[in-house]
């Protein structure tokens, strides 16, 4: 009997878990389920395991178990306090060698992308970046199901499914918010395995001298519950004042399509779409956005989409739950009015 391991890199910085880690635990469980029958038939065991590095992060390991990990490999030590490519990638590559996971998922964050490329090379295996669909599927000529990693290519116009036939682990990086957040289950049980730290500060070959924080600027678009986005149809940067007013009224944040960002109407951190952020709010309001593929891929996972566009044929309506054909400069003020009235009625 052997163990088929589905691994997830649990990303944390300064004790804050990047939520993509939980999303990945969710998918990893789904992938594990895809092969469970096959494994049971062969008398194999399937497990979902997390890899967590940091300094003083044991409590996070427990959280990971609540979010779906059967086991956590923990590397805890001062050398891991802040992310640096070498200590992280070398240590994880060693774990990969030791445990031979079948699949390894890493969030496509700035940290995760850096790390994934290094681990894949060190482990001499394939890595599919920025996947939007993952499943374990049968591939002709392969004894076991393989990871079918699907990702947009050529500006999102094509979806390409990539497989890694022979090399292990089959690695994939996944953008935040592509997969849903799993339920936290505080009754879940699992092991935490402390692995020995074998790298030293000297191996890091990078010393962080200073960290410059810019709290004010952080827009947490990816994890916002409500997003109101403006597009080129606003006609001018002033339109964002109206968008912001609506976003504030709804307690949401402001998003934007790329042309607005390119034109300097608003900062890049607001961009939704393929080359911006993928979002999954409860409510997404798109105003003056035509709904190009590259924008849609970033927001079509939203629970509920309201599109406002004066062109009845705008492609954004294809993904909208409700489409309002009309001028955003008439519709949004009216929306503000009605929402304010509703709030007042409630108070």
């Amino acid at each position: 009997m052997s163990t088929r391991r589905f691994w997830v890199f649990i990303e944390q910085e300064e004790g804050h878990i990047h939520p993509v880690s939980w999303e990945l635990l969710g998918v990893a469980n789904k992938l594990a389920a895809d092969v469970r029958d096959e494994a049971t038939a062969e008398g194999d065991e399937v497990v979902v395991e997390g890899v967590l590095l940091g300094e003083g992060v044991e409590s996070l390991a427990q959280e990971a178990i609540y979010h779906g990990a059967n086991r956590i490999y923990l590397l805890d030590g001062p050398v891991f306090k802040y992310y640096r490519t070498r200590p992280y990638s070398k240590s994880i590559a060693k774990l990969v060698k030791k445990y031979e996971p079948e699949v390894f998922l890493i969030g496509a964050t700035t940290l995760g992308r850096d790390l994934a490329g290094a681990i894949a090379t060190a482990s001499h295996t394939g890595l599919t970046a920025d996947c939007t669909q993952l499943e374990m599927g049968e591939v002709k000529g392969a004894k076991h199901k393989l990871l079918l990693a699907t990702r947009p290519a050529f500006g999102g116009n094509i979806m390409a499914t990539i497989v890694c036939r022979k090399h292990r682990p089959q690695m994939a990086s996944v953008r935040p918010r592509v997969f849903p957040m799993p339920e936290r289950n505080p009754a879940a049980q699992g092991d935490i395995i402390r692995e020995p730290v074998m790298v030293t500060e000297d191996d890091a070959m990078a010393t962080i001298l200073e960290i410059i924080r810019n709290e004010g600027e952080n827009v947490n678009l990816e994890y916002a519950d409500i997003i109101v986005s403006g597009g080129r149809g606003m006609g001018s940067p002033d339109g964002f004042a109206l968008i912001k007013e609506l976003a504030d009224e709804l307690g949401g944040v402001v998003g934007a399509s790329r042309p607005c960002v390119d034109a300097g109407w608003i900062g890049y951190e607001h961009q939704v779409g393929q080359s911006g952020k993928t979002v999954r709010p409860k409510l997404y309001i798109a105003a003056g956005i035509s709904g190009a593929l590259q924008h849609k891929v970033g927001m079509q996972g939203s629970d509920f989409i309201i599109a406002i566009n004066n062109d009845p044929n705008a492609p954004i309506f294809e993904v909208a739950d409700v489409g309002i054909i009309g001028d955003l400069y008439e519709v949004i003020p009216e929306m503000l009015k009605q929402i304010r009235a509703k709030k007042e009625a409630q108070a």
């Binding site: 001499h124 295996t125 394939g126 890595l127 599919t128 591939v139 079918l148 947009p152 290519a153 999102g156 116009n157 094509i158 979806m159 390409a160 499914t161 990539i162 497989v163 890694c164 036939r165 022979k166 090399h167 593929l293 891929v297 079509q300 989409i305 009845p312 309506f317 294809e318 993904v319 909208a320 739950d321 409700v322 489409g323 309002i324 054909i325 009309g326 001028d327 008439e330 519709v331």
Partner: peptide, 22 residues
């Protein structure tokens, strides 16, 4: 190690209702 297994065009969900202000 990786190969492109298949290519396709993205799928579109069912569109919702449209309301015309006019």
């Amino acid at each position: 190690p990786t190969i492109v297994y298949k290519m396709g065009t993205p799928e579109l969900p069912e569109p919702g209702e449209k309301i015309n202000t006019r």
